[in-house]
Computed example of a mutant assay.
Amino acid sequence: MTAPTRRTAPKRRPSRGRKWIIALLVLVALLVGADFALAAAGEYQVAQKMRAKLGLAEDPSVRINGFPFITQALGGDYKDIEISATGVPVRDQLRDLEIQANLLHTRIELSNLLAGNTKGAKIDRVQGRVKIKANDLNRLVNQVTPFTDMAIEPDTRAEVTEEQAAAAPRTSAAVKLSGNTTLAGRKISLTAYGTVTLIGGQVELAANELKIDDLSLEQFIPQLKQALSIKIDPGVLPFTVTPTAVQVESGAFTVEGTVDNIPLDEGNG
């Protein structure tokens, strides 16, 4: 007796609804890819412009925030263009500045942006920042006393309420410094507490309290405090923004400021 032949079930064809979904997903992927490509082209043109404008040796990093890009482009209003560059020198004093700027509501037609033509472009607000890092601080204080492994941190010993932080003048901030030096032929570790103050566009560092791990060398503390009390000129902020505030973060002092209603071609460069 022969076994009955088993029928193979016919393969199901994709339904019309499923085809539409696949086609829609493909279309969305193409539109997203085109959007990112268009944004990249705009970012490239901004980077070229900012390199010349800020006097940089290399193109800065540029990111046009917000998705989709095309809706901003069609309106000619780019909500937040983020620019950053590292390793920027200022004269012979600083060699590793980090420059940042956020251009809020840059108004320029897409055709002009892609052509690199920024004439007539306006920015509602520019937020500019310059970071002075620990290795530059180490280099500056080394000119007085040989320090190594300098570290910058906020001084968090005193608790500050939100109301006090809001009311406090942002032209001054508490700082904690730590590092190593050599005194009387001995290598010592030190911790200093003080303030960084923004005065006339310069950062003034004052060491008010200093501790060392070798108490037999305490007579050198006034000398060390003086060596750590220096002035730092961070140079001109992006778009010649006037610095109005200074803050301390892990590894750096940050000087910042804002300027409103400025032509894109105005300022540095």
Rank of each mutant, 00 (worst) to 15 (best):
A41N: 11
W20K: 07
G17S: 15
K19D: 09
L25C: 14
A39Q: 08
D35A: 02
K19H: 09
I21A: 15
A23S: 10
L38K: 00
Y44V: 03
V28Q: 03
S15K: 14
V32Y: 10
A39N: 05
E43P: 01
G33W: 04
R16W: 11
V46A: 05
R18L: 15
R16K: 10
P14Q: 10
L31Y: 04
R12S: 10
S15D: 13
A23C: 06
R12N: 04
A34G: 15
A47V: 06
E43D: 08
P14G: 11
R18Q: 12
Q48S: 13
K11Q: 06
A23T: 08
G42R: 01
L24T: 12
L31V: 11
V46K: 01
A41I: 01
A34Q: 07
R13C: 10
V26K: 00
A23H: 04
P14H: 07
R16V: 14
A39G: 05
A40K: 08
I22H: 03
I22A: 12
R12E: 09
V46H: 01
A40C: 00
S15R: 15
L27W: 08
E43L: 04
E43G: 00
P14W: 14
K11W: 02
V28R: 00
L30K: 02
R12P: 08
W20R: 11
V26M: 04
L24N: 01
R16H: 07
P14T: 10
L25D: 01
V26G: 03
L30V: 14
L25M: 14
V32N: 09
L27I: 09
A23N: 08
A9H: 09
A9L: 13
R16E: 11
Q45F: 04
G42I: 00
D35Q: 06
A29D: 08
A34C: 10
A23K: 03
G33N: 05
L31H: 02
A34D: 13
